[in-house]
């Protein structure tokens, strides 16, 4: 089966200024993004993530290299019909309401007139934007903008969903709900590609990641493989007494195992925040 996105030796140079100085944004990048997974493209600001996605979508042209999405060259409208895209820091037409925007996007994406209303309401429901859908987009908060952006990206039921920094500037509660939307998409068998520099969130959401630096790929693999240290183990123990600890240490040592550290587990500040704060007002 072919990949959802296949990028082969992609290089992208931007010309800046009148003298045409070259800036290499993406440097000989090769990626195979499998279908049916959540794939994270990570890296610091300016490392070329957005540029890569734009080239994949045919919004900017590649300087060198080949790209296909869903088995078709990226520039074809057939490929784009099966793809949904949420751009970085999305700003939508402020004078439209959320519902009008999603409807407009559905029409442009080729949703048939008979399915239009149902598709729009489904997408709004999925993004938890039904309540605010009648308000002009100019009045939305950042989290709502991302969610309406998500709704417009999935309204035509695409196979591949590309999200550029879907959680940038969104609070942890909002990010968690975007994470749930992403998983809902994967459970429907869709491929989701997202790029981000917020690593903690990516870890929870993605199945597979690629890390870029200065336009080059530095690491690629399944999150499990990349992160787990298979030679180390962590146990979480309740009601531990000093005596129990000595006994356990002795028992482990008898088998040649060595305890290198004993600590109290910590929850992340983000988990704590999510436990305390039930939801923002616009959720």
């Amino acid at each position: 089966m072919n990949s959802a996105i296949s990028v082969r030796h992609l290089t992208k140079d931007f010309r800046i200024g009148i003298r045409g100085l070259k800036l290499r944004a993406v440097d000989d990048l090769s990626l195979e993004i499998p279908r049916g997974q959540v794939y994270g493209l990570l890296g610091p600001n300016g490392c070329g993530k957005s540029t890569t996605l734009k080239v994949v979508l045919g919004l900017v042209s590649a300087t060198a290299g080949e790209i296909s999405i869903l088995g078709e060259p990226s520039a074809t409208s057939a490929a784009r019909r099966r793809t949904g895209f949420l751009p970085e820091a999305p700003y939508f037409h402020k004078f439209l309401t959320g519902r009008e925007l999603v409807r407009y996007c559905a029409q442009l994406s080729g949703v048939a007139a008979s399915d239009l209303d149902a598709a729009v309401e489904d997408a709004l429901g999925l993004a938890a934007m039904k309540e605010a859908a009648g308000r002009p987009i100019g009045t939305y908060s950042k989290g709502m903008l991302q969610r309406i952006g998500f709704a417009q990206a999935v309204v035509h039921d695409p196979e591949l969903i590309i999200l550029d920094e879907p959680t940038a500037g969104v609070d942890p509660v909002g990010s968690a709900s975007i994470g749930r939307m992403i998983h809902a998409m994967r459970d429907k068998g869709k491929t989701v590609v997202l790029c981000s520099h917020l690593l903690g969130q990516v870890e929870q959401v993605c199945d597979r990641v690629a890390i870029m630096d200065r336009g080059k790929l530095v690491l690629e693999g399944a999150v499990e493989d990349v992160l787990s240290r298979r030679d180390r183990h962590v146990m979480t123990i309740e009601a531990m007494t000093p005596a129990a600890r000595t006994a356990a240490e002795a028992a482990l040592e008898a088998h040649g195992a060595k305890i290198t550290s004993v600590t109290h587990p910590r929850r992340s500040l983000e988990d704590l925040f999510r436990e305390l704060v039930t939801g923002s007002r616009d959720a």
Binding site: L59, T83, L86, C105, S109, G149
Partner: peptide, 14 residues
């Protein structure tokens, strides 16, 4: 400038 063209042109729109 508002990058709405980015959203639109990523759709099957020439």
């Amino acid at each position: 400038d508002n990058k709405t063209a980015l959203t639109l042109l990523a759709k099957p729109l020439s």
